[in-house]
Every structure is written in C-alpha cells, then in structure tokens.
C-alpha cells in the first residue's frame, strides 16, 4: 500500500486477529473440552479454561476409544488413516509421474487417446459414481481391505497434469545433452527428471497426504469392519444423536488427534503446501 497510515494498520491487525479467533475458536473449544470431566461437558459447565483430565482422556481415546458405544481404539484408527494417506499419496505420485513421463517424453500409438482418457477423469469425482464403484470393489473382493480403501483413489488426472506441465518446462537441450552423454530413457528419468521433480513431488505429497487422511465417503462405503475404521470416519460412529450416549470427552480428544497430523504437515511444510495447492489447481 502506498499510504502508511497508523489507523489503517491498526484496523488491519484488528481484523486479522478477529479472523484468527473465528478460525481458531472451534478448535480451542474442542481442545478445552477434551480436558474436562464428561459431566462438566454434558451439563455445559466446563467454561473456557482447560481442565485437568487431558492426559487421561487422550490415553483412553488412543488405547480404548469410546465406551458407551464401543469403538475401535483411536491409535488403531490413526494407523489405518496413516496407511490410507501414505498409500494414496505415494501411489498417486508414482503412477502419475510415470504416466506423465510416457506422455511427454515419447511418441507412441494412441498417445493422445490415453492422455485424454486420463484427463477426462478430472470431471468424475467419486461422489458421482458411488454405487457402481462400490460394486466394482466388492466384485474384486476388496471390501474391508487396505487395497480397496486406497487403489481406487490412486488414479487421478490432477497429479498427471501437474507432472506433465512441469516436464514440458524441461528444455529440449537438456534431453539432447543427456542423449549425447549416453543416457537412455530410464536413466534420464532416474538421473535427471526425478531429482528435478523433487520439489514438485514433495509439494504434491503434502496435498495428497491431506487428501488421503481426510477421506470420508470412501471408507464409509468400503469398510464395514470397525477394525478398518479411519479416524476421520470413525469419529462419526462415536457420535449418536441422543447426547447421553456420546462420550463427548473422548470424541473431543479424538477430534484433536484427527486434526493433528494433517495440520502439522501444513504448518511445518508451509512453503511446499502453498506451492502444492497453487500448482494442483492450475
């Protein structure tokens, strides 16, 4: 801004602080609730300051889950979520980078046909083909398996397009220099393309990890065995409409635990996260 008026700066600070309060308050309240006696929560007497039950509640949540409605221990759910998030992120990156490499660095029959085959899937989120996809997974015998939970979500046009975009910026001369230096296609991929793509891979990983961790509809469809619950989906099973049966203190602790890994990734890898976010939407 051109003018540097103290008042306008003060207003800016005030609005931003208000924004942060709005954004953070729900999480703060959840954190507070997770440290209070269940009775205080249910009676609405817990207030806005931390209680002293935090350690106990998180311990209970991690190792046994909710009691009134029996749930899977949260640690196990987090394990499931971690597997799902990692397999989806790594799997997507792996198949996308090689398919983009094929499309960009080779000329082969039906190349554009294949490219469009992948490209069109941008327009087909899981949500618009829920049951037929479910049926395919069921027919393949993949219900209640990690494979069923992850593989169908591994194909995506977004990552392929991102890598294609990046590969197109690699100068022709670099490919020629490598050819003269005696590098064939696989060597070029390993020695040149992969190292050059590291930032893109890392940025994409951050976004895809969050995507995988936060999946909800898919685990809801594919898993019936509560031992396979992911944490994001598992929380729903802990909440029942009649309040008295909901172990809110455990639910609150679980909610915090469900947010922790993806939020941690975003905050710690902020630069990569922002890059990934902007790149995947181009």
């Amino acid at each position: 801004m051109v003018e540097q008026r103290p008042l306008s700066k003060f207003v800016a600070h005030a609005i931003l602080v208000a924004g942060i309060v709005i954004v953070a308050f729900p999480v703060y309240l959840t954190l507070i609730a997770s440290t209070h006696e269940p009775a205080d929560i249910v009676n609405g007497t817990m207030g806005l300051l931390p209680g002293h039950m935090g350690v106990t509640h998180y311990f209970d949540a991690l190792f046994s889950g909710t009691k009134q409605i029996k749930s899977t221990p949260v640690l196990q759910m987090m394990g499931n979520s971690l597997v799902m998030a990692l397999v989806i992120a790594i799997g997507k990156i792996a198949i996308s980078i090689i398919s983009a490499y094929a499309v960009v660095f080779f000329r082969f029959p039906f190349r554009m046909f294949f490219f469009w085959t992948i490209f069109v899937t941008l327009m087909l989120p899981v949500e618009v083909r829920i049951y037929p996809t479910y049926k395919v997974v069921a027919d393949l015998g993949l219900l209640n398996t990690y494979a069923g939970l992850t593989i169908p979500l591994i194909a995506s046009a977004t990552a392929t397009l991102l890598f294609r975009q990046f590969f197109l910026t690699i100068p022709d001369e670099l490919v020629e220099a490598a050819q003269i230096d005696g590098a064939g296609p696989m060597k070029f991929f390993r020695d040149i393309v992969l190292p050059l793509s590291l930032t893109n891979i890392a940025a994409l990983f951050v976004i895809l990890f969050i995507y995988g961790w936060n999946q909800y509809l898919w685990p809801l469809l594919i898993t019936t065995d509560s031992g396979m619950d992911t944490i994001v989906y598992g929380i729903r099973r802990m909440i029942v409409t009649s309040d008295a049966n909901t172990d809110w203190h455990i639910v609150m602790a679980t909610t915090m635990l469900a947010m922790l890994p993806p939020v941690f990734v975003v905050v710690v890898m902020q630069r990569l996260f922002v890059k990934g976010l902007v790149d995947t939407e181009k």
């Binding site: 936060n214 909800y216 994001v232 469900a258 947010m259």
Partner: peptide
C-alpha cells in the same frame, strides 16, 4: 483449517 477434514 485447510487440513481439517470436512467431517471433522
């Protein structure tokens, strides 16, 4: 909050 799942 981008990292928070919609369900959460």
């Amino acid at each position: 909050p981008y990292a928070v799942a919609p369900a959460i």
